[in-house]
């Protein structure tokens, strides 16, 4: 019996140790980007989102005394124009918005992200796009190929509440002159 216990312990110990070891650094670093793909380089500028939002900061403008209701329901009074066409009707506001501080978004593990850092939140589900974006191969980048560039965050192109982009009119086909005129 003692021998078996020793064998079990021998196998179990490294597993426990490795679990602890694996979890520890992420918390120990405590950095905002721990466990996430690399953050953009120094010469990459991401235009801020918060300056473009009419109702930001949400807490100061409305939600200082108005408590957000986490129950899914049709919105009639406020935000009535918002249609969530994302996540196949399983999403509600608090899936992304942090109801403890509505000026921020919350990630799956409880950490928060600002509206300017939406890519951290989006990347939790769309990891492939997040990795490509970090490499500069998803989404529009302008500026200098060998220097400072402007990289758009996810929400610059995609409406987070309805990310599928609408169809729009193509510009007319060119008309090369045909025949003698």
């Amino acid at each position: 019996m003692g021998l078996w216990a020793a064998i079990v312990l021998l196998f179990a110990l490294p597993v426990v140790a490795s679990c602890g070891g694996g979890g520890e650094p992420a918390h120990a670093q405590g950095g905002e980007h721990a466990g996430e793909p690399s953050v953009p380089d120094a010469d990459i500028v991401i235009p801020p989102r918060t300056t473009q939002l009419a109702t930001y900061p949400c807490v100061e403008q409305c939600h200082a005394d108005r408590v957000a209701n986490p129950t899914p329901r049709p919105l009639r009074e406020f935000h009535s124009a918002k249609h969530i066409e994302h996540g196949d009707t399983t999403f509600w506001c608090n899936f992304c918005h942090n109801f403890d501080n509505l000026n921020t978004l919350h990630l799956l593990d409880g950490r928060t992200a600002t509206f300017d850092e939406a890519y951290r939140l989006c990347g939790e589900c769309h990891g492939d796009k997040r990795r490509d974006w970090a490499l500069g191969i998803h989404g529009l980048q302008t500026g200098f190929w060998n220097g400072e560039k402007t990289r758009r965050s996810c929400t610059a192109c995609h409406d987070p509440h309805a990310p599928r982009r609408p169809r729009f009119q193509a510009l007319p086909a060119p008309h090369p002159r045909t025949g003698v005129q």
Binding site: L135, G136, I137, H138, L140, Q141, T142, W145, C157, R165
Partner: peptide
Amino acid sequence: VGRYPACLEVCPTGSRKFGNLLDPNSE
């Protein structure tokens, strides 16, 4: 002079990528 081509910068989908083929970190 280091800038991206005009067709790339106007693309609304970001489907165009340009860079230095000899730089292993380029897009």
